[in-house]
Structures are given as structure tokens and as C-alpha cells.
Amino acid sequence: KNAAKIVNEALNQGITLFVSDNKLKYKTNRDSIPSELLEEWKQHKQELIDFLTQLES
């Protein structure tokens, strides 16, 4: 999976991924984040940080 797909899947579940101080963060109104999503974010962390940083610049 690529970073764009992961970010879109998160958005579809009401979760916004973003970068703050070079760290991957998220915002959501959900009570909890599915563990498989958290695991996927960890596996692709640097790719996600790079992707989101490019989007914001």
C-alpha cells in the first residue's frame, strides 16, 4: 500500500493524519483506532511523514 491510499482509508474512517514536529499524528472523533490501522501506520511511518509533509508544503 502506498501513503496516499493509507491516508485516504484513514479519512474514510473519520481519521485525519498529519505531521507535527516531524512526528505522525492523528485527529479523530472516534473512541478508538483499530489496531490494524495503527500497525499499518507504524509500518509505513516514514513514507506517511514524507507524503504528508510534501502535501503541506
Rank of each mutant, 00 (worst) to 15 (best):
L17M: 04
K5F: 12
T28I: 03
H44P: 00
L37G: 02
A4I: 07
Y26P: 01
S32G: 07
E36R: 08
V7R: 03
N8M: 15
F51D: 00
I15A: 03
K45I: 15
N12V: 13
N29K: 10
K45Y: 15
K23H: 08
P34K: 04
Q43G: 06
A3D: 01
E39P: 02
E47I: 11
F51I: 03
Q54D: 09
S35Y: 13
Q46C: 08
L11C: 11
G14E: 04
F18I: 06
I15W: 03
E39F: 08
T28Q: 03
E39H: 08
K5P: 02
Q43W: 08
P34T: 05
E9Y: 07
Q54N: 12
H44W: 13
D31T: 12
Q54H: 09
Q54E: 11
E47G: 05
D21M: 07
L55G: 09
D31Q: 11
K5E: 15
E39C: 07
E9K: 07
H44R: 06
E47W: 04
E9N: 08
T16N: 06
K1N: 10
S20F: 11
G14K: 04
E56T: 12
I15L: 03
S57W: 06
Y26K: 01
L52N: 00
L17F: 04
N22W: 05
Q13K: 09
Q43C: 06
L17R: 01
D31R: 08
E36M: 08
E56G: 15
N2K: 10
K45C: 14
L38Y: 08
K1D: 08
E9Q: 07
I49D: 01
D21V: 04
K45H: 14
N12E: 15
A4N: 06
S20G: 06
N29G: 07
L55F: 12
E39L: 10
I49A: 02
Q13C: 09
K1Y: 12
V19H: 02
V7T: 03
V19R: 02
K27W: 09
N2H: 12
F18L: 06
E40C: 15
G14S: 04
N2I: 14
K5T: 15
L17H: 01
K1A: 11
I6K: 02
K25I: 07
A10S: 04
L52E: 00
S57H: 13
K45M: 15
K25P: 00
K45F: 12
T53R: 11
V19F: 05
D21A: 07
V7D: 01
V7L: 06
Q13E: 07
T28P: 07
Q43F: 10
A3E: 03
A10T: 03
L37P: 01
Q54L: 12
L48H: 00
D21W: 05
L11M: 10
L37R: 03
E40T: 14
E40N: 07
K25D: 06
E39M: 09
D31N: 11
I6Q: 02
Q54A: 14
S32I: 12
L55D: 08
S35R: 12
N8I: 13
I49W: 04
